[in-house]
Simulated scan of single mutants.
Amino acid sequence: MEINALRMKKKLEDYDFSKACPIRNVLDRFGDKWSILVILLLGEHKGPMRFNELAQTIGDISQKMLTVTLRTLEADGMVHRKHYPEIPPRVEYELTELGKGLLPHINGLTQWALKNYDAITKSRKKFIARKQFA
C-alpha cells in the first residue's frame, strides 16, 4: 500500500463512521435547520427567553419544530427549560454552561459564513450555469 493510502486509512480510523462515533454523534445534532439559530438567540439574549418570544424572533419556525429543537437541545444539556405552574403556563429557556461553551465556535462559524457569503453564492451560480450547459 502506498503512503497516501495508509494515511487515509489511518484518518478514517480516527473518524469512526459508525453511529457510535462521538464526533458524528454530536455534530449530527446541530446539522438541522434550527438548533444553531436557537443557540445563537439564547446566547445573545440577556436572561431566559419565553417560548413565544423565541418563536416570534425566529419568525418562520413552526411551534412543533421549535418544540422539537428545544427538547433536543435540552436532552443534550445545551438548554435549561423552566416551567412555571401558572395559568396560562409559562415556560422559559436559557443556555446552560455547556451551551454557552459552544457559542464561541458558532460565532466563529457565523463570522466565516458572513465573510465568505459572496464567494459561495458566486461559486453556486457558476456551478449551476455549468450544469445547465453540460
Results as ranks from 00 to 15, higher is better:
81 R>P: 03
2 E>Y: 03
114 L>W: 05
80 H>I: 15
33 K>F: 15
110 T>W: 06
48 P>G: 03
89 P>D: 08
43 G>R: 02
86 E>K: 10
27 L>V: 15
128 I>T: 05
14 D>A: 11
86 E>C: 06
32 D>P: 04
92 E>G: 00
8 M>P: 01
120 I>A: 14
99 G>F: 09
70 L>A: 06
7 R>Q: 05
8 M>A: 14
30 F>L: 15
98 L>T: 09
126 K>L: 12
109 L>A: 14
11 K>E: 06
22 P>N: 02
50 R>Q: 09
41 L>T: 03
66 L>K: 03
99 G>C: 09
47 G>H: 06
78 M>W: 03
35 S>P: 01
108 G>Y: 10
36 I>R: 07
81 R>S: 11
132 Q>E: 14
8 M>Q: 13
60 D>C: 04
46 K>M: 07
90 R>T: 12
17 F>S: 13
10 K>T: 08
55 A>P: 00
43 G>H: 05
119 A>Y: 13
52 N>D: 12
39 I>M: 10
41 L>W: 01
109 L>M: 14
19 K>G: 04
72 T>E: 10
80 H>D: 14
37 L>P: 00
93 Y>V: 04
50 R>P: 00
116 N>L: 10
116 N>G: 09
91 V>P: 01
18 S>G: 15
41 L>I: 11
93 Y>H: 04
25 N>V: 04
56 Q>I: 10
40 L>K: 05
76 D>L: 11
20 A>T: 08
88 P>G: 07
17 F>D: 11
15 Y>K: 01
80 H>A: 15
117 Y>P: 01
82 K>W: 09
40 L>G: 00
